[in-house]
Design a protein around this nucleic acid. Structure first.
Lengths: 349, 349
DNA sequence: TGAACTTCTGTAAACGTTTACGGGAGATGG
DNA sequence: CCATCTCCCGTAAACGTTTACAGAAGTTCA
């Protein structure tokens, strides 16, 4: 363990009998005499030289790191994004710095501000809410930022979004086509980006269908299993009849609902059809397998990574922020009936 | 976007009318005159100063980053570790650099070697195999390393392991106690660290019980669902009777087995009891809920993080590598019968 | 009053790279 | 044979910090 301090470019230069400039040139593939190259590579190999990234960064202002910030990396949606982002970045020679901020909005803003430390060349962030502070920090950001999720203003940052309204519609159309008429809706917090979008879409769609949402059929909680169970509990205990279908704002909620329905002896999809959202791995594993609206998490992750790399390569024209929209698809499984894929009709790219 | 270059310590010094040394002192909480402190903080606030981490690192040789390397961050086991590691590191003021190496052993070694770049103050790694190259790199590592999983030699590195042999025993004892006699075993690759341990434990235990493992009852594949399904397929198609219990080397395999059993009309646990390993989130979600051997992934992650932080604080006595063993527990769910927890009898801490 | 301390501050070096600049040596051409 | 051009290479500066060292100013005490 008593390692003698590791070799620097100076050590190599001495060992090879050349100047540090030559060493640097060889190491960076700049043109040098063959003999010089040989000597340097030889010395470097012999001494086990590895370049110091801090020095490199300080001089060149490139960290070869990209940060990815989400509320909770345990959430399968964010995990799906990460799984796509990681290989893309690695391929391009970047390390991945992961921030799991928790539900705390202030921490997200802190991550944005942290870019000022210049520990990363860029950031991909999935904000749970977008506050005025977010907007302010996005404007002054010290490095390119790609936001996954909707933004309140145009031109703030490169942006990969999904049409979650359309996702809700896909689910509702599917349930309606199956003959379900009393459709319940279990949402997460309505003051979050995804929560609000889903709530509005549900309201609009039911209104448009001439059946304004019965408040007894709408439940708001968190994006977790307990909320799904609690919603079923409440609806089953109510005076009104049980809904014949439940649209859940994510798969976790849907799984909680499945459990509670089973506990009450209600058949799925016989008595109640259940639809989740996000189409996480859990959907395929649950019993019955869960029909779910895919919001293209993996694709959004991949697109975001590419967008950022593009920006870093200077490929993007300066000022104008780019927006990519990923289209939702409905993955039909046993929790509503048959098994087929219904997409939204528009091209997926 | 056309940001003027961000303020440095020099900018602040000029604005505050003091020297850069004083600025640095204020920023690092060293003693200065109150008036000086006021001026510096004022200027820093006004100009939005943020310290540059590369410069800081170059000078102080501390990156405030810790790397975590696993084969596949999509694997729930590694994810469970990450979820515990992340907050511990954040709390201590470290960023987390994530490496997902893929099944490739060479890439793991590359990560170890990469420490020479000094982009991280330490590394937590979960090797899928431990080769001679691993050992060599561990010896010469440029920063403290904590290995999660068993090591072939003592004293190589701080090490958090689990007693997976004991885990296999817990499962087998449980099944035996339930009256199961023909117990099948579905493993992942036997040349991996976890695969080998499980295989040996199964062999030893059945031998000790006087019922040496029937090769027809042992299946080796990958650590995935397909392998579970394939194993059931093969055993059901064989001339011999179907086993009355299946021990699967991880939860994914078990889920695949559950699917295949259901497809063949075999009841779980009626006809076949199924046990998984790792006790991931999936175990609780599946149907029927899966009895699983918890190998304490979360705890191993947490312990590893603390061990590393300890080492970085110089709290650890130089040379001697420390070993922590986390004890397995059996989480009984419906896939084998009742619902209770059986642990291995020794203290969990 | 001046020596000896304290307390605070500034100057400058150092961390390990990359790169602008200029010089030396050999080749080419008039 | 000297001017010019090319090709390599070395010197030195710069990136933005932290910190050793020493000096300035004020305090204490004989």
């Amino acid at each position: 363990m008593a390692q003698r301090s590791s070799p620097t470019i100076t050590t190599i230069a001495e060992a090879a009998g050349v100047s540090i400039a030559s060493v640097s040139r060889v190491l960076n593939g700049l043109p040098v005499r063959a003999e010089t190259e040989r000597r340097v590579l030889d010395a470097a190999g012999r001494l086990g030289y590895v370049p110091n990234s801090a020095a490199r960064t300080l001089r060149s202002a490139r960290t070869q790191q990209i940060a990815f910030a989400v509320a909770d990396i345990g959430n399968p949606v964010y995990l799906a994004m990460l799984r796509e982002i990681q290989p893309v970045l690695k391929e391009a020679g970047y390390r991945l710095v992961l921030h799991s901020t928790g539900a705390d909005t202030a921490e997200e803003v802190e991550v944005l501000r942290g870019l000022g430390q210049r520990y990363a060349d860029g950031l991909i962030i999935v904000p749970i809410r977008v506050t005025a502070d977010h907007v302010a920090e996005l404007r002054r950001a010290d490095a390119p930022v790609v936001v996954i999720g909707s933004l309140p203003e145009e031109g703030l940052a490169d942006n990969v979004r999904t049409d979650s309204r359309r996702g809700v519609e896909l689910a509702l159309e599917h349930l309606t086509a199956l003959g379900r008429r009393r459709i319940g809706f279990v949402n997460g917090p309505a003051d979050t980006v995804p929560g609000r979008a889903r709530a509005e879409a549900f309201r609009d769609h039911t209104a448009r269908a001439g059946r304004p949402a019965d408040p007894a059929l709408v439940h708001e909680g968190q994006f977790d299993r307990e909320t799904g169970a609690a919603a079923v509990q409440r609806m089953a205990d109510a005076a009104e009849p049980m809904p014949d279908a439940l649209l859940c704002a994510n798969d976790l909620i849907a799984l909680g609902a499945l459990d509670a329905l089973r506990a009450r002896g209600l058949a799925v999809p016989g008595d109640v059809a259940v639809v989740g959202m996000d189409d996480t791995d859990l959907a395929a594993v649950s019993w019955p397998p869960l029909t779910s609206v895919s919001l293209g998490s993996a694709e959004r992750g991949r697109r975001a990574a590419r967008l950022l790399l593009d920006r870093l390569d200077g490929g993007a024209d300066a000022a104008d922020a780019r927006v990519i929209t990923v289209h939702p698809r409905l993955i039909v499984r046993a929790s509503t009936g048959g098994a087929r894929v219904v997409d939204d009709g528009s091209a997926a790219h």
